[in-house]
Simulated scan of single mutants.
Amino acid sequence: MTVTVRRADPLGPEAHALLGASAAMMADRYPAEVNYSMTPEDLDDPAIRFVLAFADDKAIGCAALATRAGYGEIKSMFVAPEARGLGAGAALLRTLEGFAREDGLPALRLETGPDLTSACALYEREGFATRGPFGDYLDDPLSRFYEKPLGA
């Protein structure tokens, strides 16, 4: 099965379904004060590029790149449980990394939950290393922070 990634409207029905599933999963795992899920409306911003991953024309994953001062932040990364293991997560990350490189951003950063072990393993395989909190995030044991320098 081939996975493709393309830009998408975060307000579209496929995005709504994936973002809703992601928000529900995160709400079940984490208290509101450390749950940084973004709504489709939050993602409909000129400083954010939103993408969907597809397999056989079915949307199976989503992610966004938010341009920040001095770095790009990976947001709303999610792959539907039934589609995990197909390579969608890596394809989403590589697409966003390509956008960040095109924009000349020096690094990518993200926040995730420490018990999302498959996601953490993916980030580490893709060259991300743990770091401390950044931006408005608080130092909390329910958050894990990653960064990937992009070089020149």
Rank of each mutant, 00 (worst) to 15 (best):
P40R: 02
R7I: 15
P46Y: 14
E102P: 01
I74V: 15
Y146D: 03
A69L: 11
T117A: 01
A107D: 11
G70K: 06
F50K: 02
E124L: 08
F78C: 02
F99C: 03
C62I: 13
R29D: 12
V79N: 04
P31R: 08
G151R: 09
G113R: 06
S76Q: 02
L86S: 11
L43K: 03
D139S: 12
D57N: 11
D45P: 00
D9V: 14
A47D: 14
R7V: 15
V5W: 03
E73H: 07
T4C: 00
G98K: 05
L116H: 06
C62E: 04
A53D: 05
T39K: 01
F50D: 03
G151K: 07
A55Q: 13
A80E: 05
A100P: 00
A55Y: 08
G85P: 02
L65H: 07
A17I: 08
E124T: 12
T2V: 10
Y137G: 03
P40N: 07
A53P: 05
D44I: 09
A91V: 06
M26Y: 15
L150A: 01
D115E: 10
V5C: 01
V3S: 00
A66I: 11
G151P: 01
F128A: 04
E33S: 09
M26C: 07
E126N: 07
A152Y: 07
A8W: 02
D57G: 06
G98V: 13
L150H: 04
L19T: 05
I48K: 05
R94Y: 09
G113M: 06
D140W: 09
D115A: 09
G85K: 02
T117G: 00
T117I: 07
A88Y: 10
F145L: 03
N35Q: 05
R84H: 09
L11D: 02
I74G: 01
F145V: 05
R7N: 06
L19K: 00
R68Q: 12
Y71C: 03
L11F: 08
G87Y: 12
P13H: 10
F50I: 08
E41R: 07
L108F: 07
T4L: 06
D42K: 04
T4E: 06
R49N: 05
D57Q: 14
A100V: 12
A107S: 15
D115L: 08
E33D: 15
M25I: 13
N35K: 06
D136H: 14
S37V: 15
L150S: 05
K148T: 07
E124W: 04
R144T: 15
R49D: 13
L96D: 04
A23K: 08
T67N: 01
